[in-house]
Computed example of a mutant assay.
Amino acid sequence: MFDWNDLKYFLAVARTGSTLAAARSLKVNQTTVARRIDALERGLGLTLFVRLPNGYRLTERGEATVALAEQVEQGASTLADTARGWNRTIAGTVRVTTTEILAIDVVAPLVAELRSQHPSLSIELIADDRRLDLSCGEVDVALRVGSCPEEPGIVRRRLATSVWALHCARSYAERHGLPGTIADLGRHEIVGGTGSLKELGPLVALRKAAPDAPIGIRCNSVPNLIAAVRSGMAIGPLPCWAAFEDDGLLRCPVPELEARSDIWLLYHESLRESPHVRLFREAVTARFEVVRHRFEGRSAPGVQAV
């Protein structure tokens, strides 16, 4: 069997008429070209060239072989061009899991932008507080809030710190004033948690700090919690991101009830070089570079801290 690579040397000699000229065009030495031509003829069992003092002349079989070799050359070129196109075209499905608030406020808008640039990219977004298994392939990427996971094989990147602080609606403050200390909370209605929010840290801390405060409403999800506080019916802890640029919300000056949790980007190391997963990871990381201060409650115009 002949070596496919020898066809490159064969075509170079056929086109230039000598091993010397072919060697120059291929940037190899003349001996290598002559050796590869000899090997090709042995592999095919054909004489492709007549060796003359002034160069190489194609035999009848050699001329026929040129046409066939050029087909192989064209096929290789087409394959290379196609591969480059595939590498430029990001395609595939990225399965992402995160919390509801991150899904709504960060991931969904980002997906819309990515899809406009990469129509063959598909995102499967799972908004769930459950910790789906990255190692078993339940999801490809996770955006999680809380402690850093320690599972082997998981790549971790801290994106930001999510700060929660006590907030109320401006309309609530106009009717009842603002608590200035923890001791003031007893005369205010507060939000309580139920269902999946029953053990939410900021809500539990609020209840412990104000055990005698009446509970105006109980919520079972973060979007419900945000809506309840915005409605003006009670005071409650909110992620600073949700209150950003919202003139209807006021941040209460009770720093003892502020809570901080890290936001992590996680994926399995086996997906490190996956083009579509890498594109999503890089886009999420870049987005958090822009919005990190909002999560951290810094320089948030529209949210009045008093």
Results as ranks from 00 to 15, higher is better:
E63L: 05
D247L: 10
I215M: 03
A142D: 14
D81P: 02
R278G: 04
L68A: 01
S18N: 02
A69R: 04
N5H: 13
M233V: 04
S261R: 15
G195H: 07
E73Y: 00
V141C: 12
L279W: 13
T97S: 15
L265C: 14
L265E: 12
S261G: 04
V204E: 00
N54F: 08
I154C: 13
H118F: 10
V284P: 15
R61E: 15
P109S: 05
Y9E: 13
P152F: 11
E150L: 07
A127S: 08
A242I: 04
D105N: 11
A169T: 05
Y267L: 09
G55L: 04
E138R: 12
L271E: 10
R187K: 03
T16M: 03
A83S: 05
V96Q: 11
W4Q: 14
W4P: 13
Y172F: 09
I235W: 06
N87P: 02
T99W: 08
S135F: 11
T285K: 12
G137M: 14
A21L: 07
I217M: 11
R84C: 06
Q304L: 12
G180S: 00
W264V: 07
S120G: 08
S196G: 00
M233D: 05
W241C: 05
H176T: 10
E63A: 11
V66A: 03
L200E: 05
R144D: 05
A183Q: 00
I217D: 04
R287S: 15
R115L: 11
P53K: 01
I235T: 05
P214V: 09
G193C: 02
R251S: 10
C252Q: 09
T16K: 05
C219L: 12
R156F: 14
L48T: 00
A173L: 13
V155P: 14
R272I: 01
R287C: 12
C168G: 03
G153Y: 05
L121R: 07
N224E: 15
N54R: 03
V291R: 06
R170F: 02
Q71N: 01
K208Q: 03
N224C: 10
T82Y: 03
V106G: 07
S77I: 02
R36D: 03
G43S: 07
E113M: 10
G216Q: 08
V107W: 05
A21V: 09
C240P: 02
R251A: 07
E151R: 06
D129M: 08
R35Q: 09
P152M: 10
A83F: 03
I154Q: 14
E150H: 09
R115P: 03
T181G: 03
G248T: 11
P109G: 06
V107L: 12
A243E: 06
A142I: 06
Y9F: 10
V139I: 15
K8Y: 10
S270H: 00
G62S: 07
G297N: 04
T161E: 11
T285H: 14
I182M: 07
E100T: 14
A67G: 01
D184P: 04
S162D: 14
W4L: 15
I217N: 07
C252M: 03
A64R: 00
